[in-house]
Design a protein around this nucleic acid. Structure first.
Lengths: 226, 226
DNA sequence: ACCTGAACACCGTTCAAGT
DNA sequence: ACCTGAACACCGTTCAAGT
């Protein structure tokens, strides 16, 4: 006696909202932000372009669902694990969310324009507030710290994805080497400090550099300063 | 005997690269990122769409020139003024650049995808390195701090511009009130900390909140911690 | 409710042709 | 060199029509 969830009778539905969200993310992963067109999305799930408007009122609504869906894959379980110190949870989560977004560079430009008002965006914010409160911050300071962490994370990811050559320029080391060569060929008379610091600047996009800022940031807002 | 700069003879040129850059920024200011099309740009300066390709090889090149041109209006003179402490110069500059970008919200999504490799972007980076070195940081720490300040600034501006209602939602106070009402109507069972901190979260986009993070950030990277 | 096909008003870009 | 007009392969979205 197989008990499926109660479905309405009638012809088999072949496509769901979730199918479209998944297909949208796949298109973004494969071809970047410009690859997500209503026509391409429809073809991906075997529909005609106009049928998409049965599921979502506009393309913007599809984009909003897809970008919030991406945030739904953020490691918020890390934030809720009360056996670990709040500070460790925040740092681990931030590193994990950065990794997630850098693994989907095509979605990032759309995410940055999305408003961050979907259910998964709210869940991320709530989780950060919990972990920061556990780290000893007052509710108000936890909110300010959450915003500081978020802007730092999103700004970092935005710059990384905007990098010429983008994500397909090989690994961290290969990108750093390319950046360094460019920086060292700059006119030293006009930009002496930039040329001098080229090795560090070349590594801006590295995980080490993100962690450097993240740790200082967490310590700067923490209760240790109170 | 009027001595104009030597111009070639022949029919009067009516349009320059700079005209197109200025027109692009005006279109972005008036209608947001989607208002900048090659056809609209051409019409703005009295050309046909295809004539634009005489000046720039692609639309992306126009966008790059326009966004870097916007950075050219950043108050880098603030950074170079050696009569003031480095810390004050950095904070004043960051506040000024944030204001500049928020005054041109239509250009921000394009700026965030621009790569920041134009001459004015480089000049901003160089100025930050100078002021941070004057504040007592080592060259390497100045570079890391410059990146931290930049990501924070860009993340802040990105979130601000992405806000539903955007820049045309009245002043800071009006936007905060709207955000607060939305936050307080959230399901308190699912997002208790978010609802609790609603008054602070509603003010995320305020200059006060940006300054809160900026000052902590500057102090966290400063030589005081050494 | 879900889906199709035709259509509208747009895009960025190329090309042949003119001055 | 600068500019035009026609054209190509696309866009997001609407609408009438079908099941």
């Amino acid at each position: 006696m197989e008990t499926r969830e109660p479905t309405r009778p009638g012809p088999r539905r072949t496509v769901t909202d979730q199918d479209l969200v998944d297909a949208a993310l796949q298109l973004l992963d494969r071809g970047g932000p410009d690859a997500l067109s209503v026509r391409a999305l429809a073809a991906e799930v075997g529909l005609t372009a106009t049928a998409v408007y049965t599921y979502f009122p506009t393309k913007d609504a599809v984009v909003a669902a897809a970008t919030d869906g991406l945030l739904g894959r953020a490691p918020i379980a890390d934030l809720a694990d009360r056996r670990r110190p709040g500070r460790d949870r925040v740092i681990g989560f931030a590193l994990g969310l950065r990794r997630l977004l850098l693994d989907h560079p095509g979605a990032v430009p759309l995410l940055l324009r999305s408003g961050f008002n979907g259910p998964h965006a709210l869940a991320v914010g709530e989780g950060l507030l919990v972990a920061l409160a556990d780290a000893g911050l007052t509710p108000d300071d936890a909110a300010r710290a959450s915003y500081l962490l978020t802007t730092h994370l999103l700004g970092t990811v935005a710059l990384d994805v905007a990098e010429p050559g983008g994500a397909d320029a090989g690994g961290d080391d290969a990108r750093t080497a390319v950046r360094r060569a460019v920086l060292e060929n700059l006119p030293g008379a006009a930009f002496p400090r930039t040329v001098e610091a080229a090795p560090v600047i070349a590594g801006y996009n590295s995980t080490a550099q993100y962690r450097w800022g993240l740790e200082r940031l967490v310590d700067a807002v923490g209760p240790a300063g109170a």
